[in-house]
Design a protein around this nucleic acid. Structure first.
Length: 93
DNA sequence: ACATTGACCTGAG
DNA sequence: GCTCAGGCCAATG
């Protein structure tokens, strides 16, 4: 995830595929859940395949922090957490 | 050892 | 756009 350039987005499935484990998207989510909050890695550039932030009570507000961080990078996010994934999709190489 | 639970994905209607 | 069903795999009870 540290390779994701600023202003670009990746999906959970994309990360899983990148590390060679197809279908491990949930474990990517698990890994993010146990991250310390502030973290040196750009966890906020990871969203789900539907192009929106994954809101859930178990995050206890970190989802809203994510929204702010994305806005700070110039990515528009509406109140529902939806964002233009198609335009900011990161192409790994 | 079994069952449930997720910051999820894909494909078929 | 939408819902539904099936899959994935680590952690937790």
């Amino acid at each position: 995830m540290a390779q994701i350039p600023p202003g670009q987005l990746a999906t959970y499935g994309q990360i899983a595929e990148l590390i060679g484990v197809w279908g491990a998207a949930r474990q990517v989510g698990w890994a993010l859940r146990r991250l310390p909050l502030p973290s040196p890695i750009p966890w906020h550039r990871v969203v789900n395949a539907r192009g929106q932030i994954s809101f859930t009570p178990s995050r206890e507000g970190s989802d809203w922090i994510q929204r702010e961080l994305l806005l700070a990078e110039g990515i528009p996010v509406d109140a529902a957490g939806r964002l233009p994934l198609a335009r900011h999709r990161w192409q790994p190489r």
